[in-house]
Design a protein around this nucleic acid. Structure first.
Lengths: 132, 132
DNA sequence: CGGGATCCTCTATGATACTG
DNA sequence: CAGTATCATAGAGGATCCCG
């Protein structure tokens, strides 16, 4: 298979690179996964479910994904405000793939951990040799 | 489908979250894609192919991916040094998925751009209404 | 409740210079 | 060539307060 990365993939301004970073960002991954699971969530529900995310970052992440057409925001004009977030069909498509990637990491975690330990071992030995 | 995010997915220390960030990081994505395409590359070849990455970040990204068992580093003890990087089977598995995600973004880019323009339009109108 | 605005911290990244 | 070490900085992200 040939990948043939387009020249402008490298540019920080490349539009698709930017979107890729949105969906794979620290909080983007979690928001997509959570919405994939629950279909429709309120702001504070998302915040509690994710745990450890600040209001600012949740709002920012949701806005970014909404702007990219991945998330649908429905605000009911009541007091107190009631806002529901859900995935658009486009968003579900991405959430599926991102979630698959997440599961793959978890599936392969034993091999990864083993590789890390092996790497750290040879590293420590090398350092000891350099010091001694 | 039920996702059922494990409770510790949120923790910044969650090992699989960390690995996920490695493979989806700004430079990780590009390194994986490039190695998927070329099978085996030298440090400076990668640097030139990616374009815009600093030596420091390339070295750091490669080390991280090597430590995670995704990238194989082969150093020939000659002068000047000759180091080849390639994907391990594990790394190829991840590179495939990451690359698929990248292609999906490019495939859906028209819809995404359209959504962004629509979002920006309603935003500007709202701001004008607030100002006027 | 769902944010916006502000201030502050810390980390990711870049630039540069040096070395085996 | 393939890095490492050091320094500098922008931007990500957090904490807090405020408001409709």
């Amino acid at each position: 298979m040939t990948v043939s990365i387009p020249p402008n993939v490298n540019a920080a301004t490349c539009p698709s690179r930017v979107v890729l970073e949105h969906v794979t960002s620290r909080w983007g991954v979690l928001v997509l996964a959570l919405l994939l699971d629950t279909e429709r969530q309120r702001f504070s529900e998302l915040r509690r479910a994710i745990g450890g995310i600040s209001e600012k970052m949740l709002a920012q992440t949701l806005q970014t994904l909404e702007r990219d057409g991945m998330v649908l925001r429905e605000a009911r004009p009541v007091i107190p405000p009631h806002v529901d977030y859900s995935l658009t069909p486009l968003g579900r498509e991405f959430a599926d793939r991102v979630w698959a990637l997440t599961r793959l990491v978890e599936l392969r975690m034993p091999e990864i951990t083993e590789a890390q330990e092996a790497y750290d071992l040879t590293r420590r030995e090398r350092e000891r040799a350099a010091a001694g």
